[in-house]
Amino acid sequence: MFYPNSPQTSPQLTQIPYGQQYAMMQRQIQQPYHPFATTEPQARLYPYHYQGPIQQEQGGFITQQSTAASPQYVQMRVTPVDQSIMSGYPNQTANGSSSSSFNYNIHPQQQQQQQQQQQQLRHHAMPVGSVPLQDDRYRKQLIVNYLAPDVTSTDLHELFSRFGELDGARIIYDKQTNMSKGYGFVYFCHAEDAKEAVERMSGYEFHGKWLKVGYSTNPLNIVPSNSSPYVHAGSRGAAG
């Protein structure tokens, strides 16, 4: 039997160049792979992502010199942007860049009308829970959420009447099932009393439920100042 490094198959040491006398086997001759043993700084910083320098080929596509990437890492192929796409944008300079302001050559009167329309939209648009300043009635009506099913309009009136005089209180019921929808409205005579009720009743436990109280901004629920107070009856038909 002959071994790869046996004296019968191995040459004389004098015939082997210096430095390879003890590297006779194939696994010894093959050098191990060192990912950080390279002179390129990109490979030292990113050993798993770097795959060699990027070269520009004919046709405008950018390719990489090395083989496919590892399945664990996804390499994105980048193509140059066609400058003709950006030619339609206004205020574009000769080098292809555009300024931040756009001039669509709008007539001054049209621009003024658009600004007025935007101001009107901001004036009428009102986020949930906010209180408008032009109508004091919005500051007097509250919406009470997360009410228990057994709470009546009379219970709601008695709960909030300790903060001040009320114009009314009612629970909203479903017309088909005649069941409470879980929320109601309270109408105060003074805005200061309503503000105190919002601050003190939010998070209050009532009939096993934690109440959420806020201003009601729905104009359909506003009680006119010259109208008669609501009837605080315990029956659902009268309260709904």
Results as ranks from 00 to 15, higher is better:
Y215A: 00
L13M: 08
L211G: 05
F206W: 01
Q20G: 04
S161A: 09
Y187M: 05
L45D: 00
K212C: 09
I54T: 05
H123G: 07
S10C: 13
Q72T: 05
F188Q: 01
Q31S: 11
G184K: 00
D174F: 06
Q8S: 02
L159K: 00
T39P: 06
M25G: 01
V186G: 11
L142D: 11
M25N: 08
A194H: 09
Y230T: 07
Y104C: 14
G60R: 04
Y22H: 07
Y230D: 10
Y138M: 03
Y104K: 07
Q51C: 13
N218S: 05
V223G: 06
Q58G: 04
P71M: 09
S180Q: 07
A23G: 08
D167A: 05
S227E: 03
I54W: 04
V81N: 13
G168V: 02
A238D: 06
P149N: 10
G88W: 08
H123C: 09
E192H: 12
D136L: 06
P47V: 15
L166E: 10
Q75H: 13
H123D: 06
Q92Y: 13
N218V: 09
T177M: 14
P4N: 14
H49D: 12
R162G: 08
Q110I: 00
I172C: 01
V186M: 02
P90R: 08
P41S: 09
N5P: 04
S228Y: 12
N103H: 12
N105I: 07
N91F: 03
N221F: 13
P11F: 04
P47E: 09
G184A: 02
Y3P: 03
S87E: 05
Q92H: 09
I62P: 03
N91L: 07
Q20L: 01
G208H: 10
P108I: 06
G59E: 14
R122H: 15
Y48C: 09
Q134E: 12
P219S: 03
D193M: 09
M126D: 09
Y187S: 01
G19M: 10
P53W: 15
I54E: 07
S6Y: 12
S235Q: 14
R170C: 02
Q176W: 15
K212H: 05
A239F: 11
S6Q: 03
G164I: 07
R236S: 04
R162I: 06
S235M: 00
P132C: 09
Q26H: 13
R139F: 08
L142A: 04
G234S: 13
Y187P: 01
G96L: 05
T9G: 12
Q176K: 09
E205F: 15
Q118C: 07
N91D: 06
F36E: 07
E192V: 14
Q116H: 05
T152I: 07
G164S: 09
Q75D: 03
Q21R: 02
Q28E: 11
E205D: 10
A37M: 07
Q55S: 05
F188Y: 15
A239S: 11
G237M: 00
A191Q: 04
E196T: 03
Q55M: 14
T9D: 12
Q111I: 03
S227W: 01
Y48A: 03
A197W: 15
V213G: 13
S153D: 07
R170L: 06
V74G: 08
Q109A: 02
Y173D: 05
N91P: 10
P108Y: 10
A238S: 02
Q15C: 15
M201S: 02
Q55K: 10
S202L: 04
V81D: 06
I62S: 06
T14C: 02
F2W: 11
H124I: 03
S6A: 07
P127G: 06
G52L: 14
P229N: 02
L156E: 02
R139D: 04
G19A: 06
H123L: 03
M76F: 07
E192P: 10
S235L: 02
Q141A: 01
Y187E: 11
S225L: 05
Q55V: 13
V78M: 15
Y89P: 12
P11T: 03
